[in-house]
């Protein structure tokens, strides 16, 4: 296990989650604004989630060849659900009174979305991203099968040669990574929630 493998692992997760945010949040917004698109969008991301991770990577490999891009896109598809769903739910759950008030002071639909609704939905969106990151750290292990490198290759190799010490070490690194992200991001999330409720009190 080298630092290089850990960095690769982190980069795989980072890029996939970046893609997830870039596509997932707008998809959630579209699902919120256009009721007709909602069913389709939510169904599609849900179905993506049901494909076994290994199979999903295998299928993407059919089209893209074995590469880091395959792993990144696989992870992206796999982590869309929490981000899209949380964006949508976050927007729906914004207090109707607040929405009305924003309408009352003459804000346009776009203004309401960007200045009122999205900021209020942010903590929930963030929690979707947190879930996406933690899941991706684990799923990226499968990357070793399709040329993604990362910690999956060490884990797989240590199982093959029954090197329990290396297996424990690499698994520990993985757990620390997942738990670390989860911990830090849940702190930020709490901070966000506090701020929001604090603001609404004034």
């Amino acid at each position: 296990m080298t630092i290089d493998m850990i960095t690769t692992h982190l980069l795989l997760v980072f890029f996939s989650v970046l893609l997830t945010i870039i596509f997932g949040v707008p998809l959630g917004v579209v699902a919120y604004i256009f009721p007709k698109a909602r069913k389709i969008i939510l169904k599609v991301v849900e179905v993506l989630q049901t494909v076994p991770a290994l199979a999903l990577l295998g299928v993407i490999m059919v089209f893209l060849g074995p590469d880091r891009a395959t792993v990144i896109i696989g992870l992206f598809a796999y982590s869309l659900l929490p981000v899209v769903l949380n964006t949508y739910t976050g927007l729906v759950e914004v207090d109707p009174a607040v929405k009305e008030a924003a309408k009352g002071i003459g804000m346009t639909k776009i203004n309401r979305l960007f200045l009122v609704e999205l900021p209020l939905a942010l903590p929930l969106i963030f929690s979707g991203v947190r879930l996406a990151i933690v899941t991706s750290v684990g799923v990226a292990v499968f990357g070793a099968f399709v040329g993604g490198g990362g910690l999956g290759s060490v884990i797989y190799e240590s199982i093959r040669v029954s090197n329990m010490k290396l297996l424990l070490q690499s698994t520990a690194v993985l757990i620390v990574m997942a738990v670390g992200f989860d911990f830090v991001m849940s702190k930020i999330e709490k901070q966000m929630n506090k701020k929001l409720t604090g603001n609404s009190v004034d």
């Binding site: 074995p66 099968f145 399709v146 040329g147």
Partner: peptide, 9 residues
């Protein structure tokens, strides 16, 4: 570079 399954390689 990183390892991959033989058919991929």
């Amino acid at each position: 570079r990183d390892e991959m399954a033989p058919p991929a390689s």
